[in-house]
């Protein structure tokens, strides 16, 4: 089922949570709403679910305007950040809840419900847990029960609010792989909110990057990572080094002092920086290595420029061993790849 969001705005008192959002989510995709806290991503998700009212704009699910439907008629599966499992019910009754509350003429028989719950328990790999209570489960197991509960009503769309936010790093990684696999099997249009770029890049078919109530960029993970359209996206999707400079005749050149005309900023990822011992051209920057440390196969080198700004470089093991860098050494760096943004609101 497609989701179509047209001109959605939302205000809480004086706070503009969402500004004129337009989004098209194709059927069957797994889409991440990515942004820092306060960017409006959860508000948007809750509006699609019907947990927040829509005052401005239209939301269509499967070409049907849902703004006028009460949430319990929307066929939306919603998974909450802190699971929101019914504490006094067993895993079985939690999953069966959505089927048991159906009006009599639409309610499946007890056997059908039991069969459906068993099927879902198998899907989320929790066979044998039916009689447990939520308090007897680990965080990851609870999240899977919450997902099974949402899937039991066979929703048109599945919405997940920070689904892995409350889990530790290892379980998180496992669960997101599992979610990816699950989505490949059941193929229901899924939207999940996250503030973790790695999670979004790892799982989603498409990423919607939000900031301050606006959509900054929409695209496939590789697309948004490789060609960010704004400094915010570039910054948010990973570590970045900033180089001040100016653009003359379409050419960027570094400069140390603040520019009065043609000011521009070059954005360079830490692994897109080349380090040399010899000065090979004028387009290199001199810096002194201040710190070297390693996390797994990646070597992080921190260096200080002459104007006291810092540069962060990442090398793989081979590159690092080849250069054999030492702390305190003076080197020359140059960007292998760079994205230049012209500040919109520079002052003269």
């Amino acid at each position: 089922m497609t989701i179509e969001i047209q001109n959605i705005s939302k205000k809480y008192g004086n706070f503009q949570a969402l500004h004129d959002i337009n989004l098209h989510i194709p059927s069957g995709e797994l889409v991440a709403l990515l942004g820092p806290s306060g960017s409006g991503k959860t508000t948007l998700l809750r509006m699609i679910a019907g947990l927040e009212s829509v005052e401005d704009g239209i939301i269509l699910v499967d070409n049907e305007n849902v703004a006028s439907l009460h949430i319990n008629q929307r066929d939306v599966g919603f998974v909450f950040q802190h699971y929101a499992l019914f504490k006094h019910l067993t895993v079985f009754d939690n999953i069966a809840f959505g089927l048991q509350v159906r009006p009599k003429h639409k309610r499946p028989s007890a056997q059908t419900i039991a069969a459906k719950v068993d099927e879902l328990l198998a899907l989320v790999k929790l066979e044998g847990f039916a009689k447990r209570y939520p308090a007897q489960l680990s965080g990851g197991q609870r999240q899977r029960v919450a997902l099974a509960r949402a899937l039991a009503v066979e929703p048109k769309i599945l919405l997940l609010d920070e689904p892995f936010g409350a889990l530790d790093a290892k379980v998180r990684k496992e669960l997101r792989r599992w979610l990816r696999k699950l989505h490949n099997d059941i193929h229901v249009t899924t939207l999940f909110v996250t503030h973790d770029q790695e999670e979004a890049l790892d799982v989603a078919d498409r990423i919607v990057i939000m900031n301050k109530g606006k959509v900054e960029q929409v695209g496939a993970p590789a697309e948004v990572y490789e060609s960010p359209v704004s400094p915010f996206v570039y910054d948010f999707l990973g570590n970045v080094n900033l180089f001040r400079g100016r653009v003359i005749d379409g050419q960027f050149s570094f400069s140390n002092q603040a520019e009065t005309t043609n000011e521009a900023v070059g954005y360079v990822r830490p692994h897109h920086i080349k380090i040399e011992r010899e000065k090979t051209s004028d387009a290199v920057i001199s810096a002194t290595i201040t710190f070297i440390h390693t996390i797994g196969p990646i070597w992080h080198i921190e260096m200080r420029r002459d104007d006291d700004t810092y540069i962060e470089v990442e090398l793989n093991k081979e590159e690092f061993l080849l250069l054999n860098l030492q702390v305190g050494e003076n080197v020359y760096v140059s960007p292998k790849e760079m994205k230049v943004f012209i500040p919109e609101d520079f002052s003269i």
Binding site: F78, F80, A84, F86, V101, R102, A150
Partner: peptide
């Protein structure tokens, strides 16, 4: 409020939500 929101999103009406959750 989350458990009640969950109940409603699963299709429960107000009375069912109150009684069951």
């Amino acid at each position: 409020r989350a458990e009640e929101e969950a109940a409603i999103s699963l299709g429960a009406n107000g009375f069912q939500m109150f009684k069951r959750v």
